[in-house]
Write a protein that binds this DNA or RNA. Structure first.
Ligand SMILES: [Mn+2]
Ligand SMILES: [Mn+2]
Ligand SMILES: [Zn+2]
Ligand SMILES: [Zn+2]
Lengths: 144, 144
DNA sequence: TGTATATTGATTATCATTTTCAATTAGGAG
DNA sequence: CTCCTAATTGAAAATGATAATCAATATACA
């Protein structure tokens, strides 16, 4: 299962970097992988604390950063001042539809757009390392 | 000239909202329209202070927000924790190529991509109100 | 010119995230 | 298994960008 691929990838990262495997990191990773996508740090922290009251906010922040560094997660910024994280397997990619009314986030992928992005970059002699594309507006529900 | 169109648009906004025309707002607008694009609040503040030492940081922040509200400027967030502003005339739009090495920012517009974005949104019953697309990587110069 | 109201700049507050640091833990050597 | 060292943790303080406060000042209109 993908969950195990991510766990294994993080385990390898920990080993490769000379870091240590800890109870907290295991707990946070388990929760992160089973929680819903695009959770803010605060949401993850509150969710974790329900079962693990001792866990510190700083540890959650640090651990999520490690997830991003290890490649099993991505930081997302939707402009509301909250950092969100989503887990993904290496090489996966998608963009977002963000409802500005209810906050619902939908994901999509469009190879044609990505090809055109590459073409635009090429015409500038620019080498793309990453990109972000977000469409903001009203989801089907909020559009009534 | 476009500069005058923007000045006039802001003047109208000021009047329409029952706000007042002030020396500071004039100074900040002049500098903003003549400075290079995508300046951060800090950069604009420092640039302004050279000629106008009395001007307050809070006033710069507030005034830039007013520019955005009036429609003559846009807030931009590239994920480095700095808010940038760029001026544009009503209806104009473009996206960005951001060099992660030297910080250079190029602008582009691609109608085909925008049409595809619309198509993606439609297929989700989503109504786009705005969007952002940024390509991060190496500019021609930094790619060597 | 007078007056009500908006604006300014300095200061303080916010708020999410980072850093600090003493105490604790992990995990390899012996 | 026991030591030992370096990594990790949680609480608290620091950070950094922006926003709010507020007394003093400037603006615009009657
Ligand atoms: Mn996503
Ligand atoms: Mn631009
Ligand atoms: Zn919605
Ligand atoms: Zn560059």
């Amino acid at each position: 299962m993908k969950r195990d691929i991510k766990k294994e990838a993080f385990r390898e990262f920990i080993a490769r970097e000379g870091l240590k495997s800890t109870r907290q990191r295991d707990i946070i990773l388990d929760f992160f992988l089973s929680a819903k996508r695009h959770m803010s740090v605060e949401e993850l922290y509150r969710g974790l604390r329900a079962r693990h009251p001792g866990i510190g906010y700083a540890t959650v922040c640090r651990t999520l950063k490690l997830f991003a560094q290890s490649g099993i997660a991505h930081e997302i910024h939707f402009g509301d001042g909250q950092t969100r994280y989503e887990h993904l397997v290496e090489g996966e990619h998608h963009d977002h539809l963000v409802c500005t009314v209810c906050g619902t986030i939908a994901e999509f992928e469009n190879k044609t757009i990505e090809a055109l992005q590459k073409a635009v970059a090429d015409s500038h002699g620019f080498i793309i390392r990453s990109h972000r594309m977000e469409l903001y507006g009203l989801c089907a529900k909020c559009a009534k």
